[in-house]
């Protein structure tokens, strides 16, 4: 067992876990942050995507011990005291989710993407989410939501 400490959504968190404990399980079951989902546990679906030092990573492909000392953001930490983040709001506005199981992974992926590329074109948006599976929405409204989020972020920055 290892004492593992990491900063999750701005708060230092510690729990003990075996070396083989996946980061996804650590977040979900040791820290109780069940917003991060597990759809395949082999790195393909993207449901488990979280931000590690701001970069999207698949938490099912990483051991919790490896993430020790790093800054993590999960879906629970995307919004702030003011409420949902622009990306989150855009997903609701555009009906970018149905069952919601894939959604946390998309939200983390898109949050990082729009930070890098605040004014993406259509192809860039498709490319950006092309590593995340969704079985419900057919992606149409997810793509719309990404564009909408870019607009919301720009509006927020302008204020």
């Amino acid at each position: 067992m290892h004492e593992i400490t990491m900063t999750v959504n701005g708060v230092p968190r510690t729990a003990s876990a075996e070396a083989r404990r996946l980061l996804s399980d650590f977040l979900r079951h040791d820290l109780g942050l069940t917003g991060t989902h597990v759809g395949c546990e082999h790195g393909v679906c993207g449901c488990c995507t979280v931000l590690l030092d701001g970069e999207p990573v698949r938490s099912c492909l990483m051991f919790a011990v490896t993430a020790a000392g790093h800054e993590l953001t999960t879906v629970e930490g995307l919004g702030d005291a003011g409420g949902m983040s622009p990306v989150q709001r855009a997903f609701q506005e555009c009906h970018g989710l149905q069952c919601g199981f894939c959604t946390p992974g998309f939200l983390c992926t898109v949050t990082a993407f729009l930070r890098e590329n605040p004014r993406p074109g259509d192809d860039e948006v498709i490319e950006a989410v092309s590593g995340n599976l969704c079985r419900c929405t057919g992606y149409q409204n997810i793509l719309k939501a990404v564009h909408r989020a870019a607009v919301l972020i720009a509006e927020e920055d302008a204020q």
């Binding site: 979900r28 079951h29 109780g32 942050l33 069940t34 917003g35 991060t36 989902h37 597990v38 999960t74 879906v75 629970e76 995307l78 919004g79 949902m84 989150q88 997903f91 609701q92 506005e93 009906h95 989710l97 919601g100 199981f101 959604t103 946390p104 939200l107």
Partner: peptide, 22 residues
């Protein structure tokens, strides 16, 4: 109209099977 279940699901507050029974 926009969906009423979304705010929960979008903020990680959904409760799927494996989120229960800690």
């Amino acid at each position: 109209i926009a969906r009423r279940e979304d705010p929960r699901l979008i903020t990680g507050q959904g409760r799927y099977l494996d989120d229960l029974g800690g």
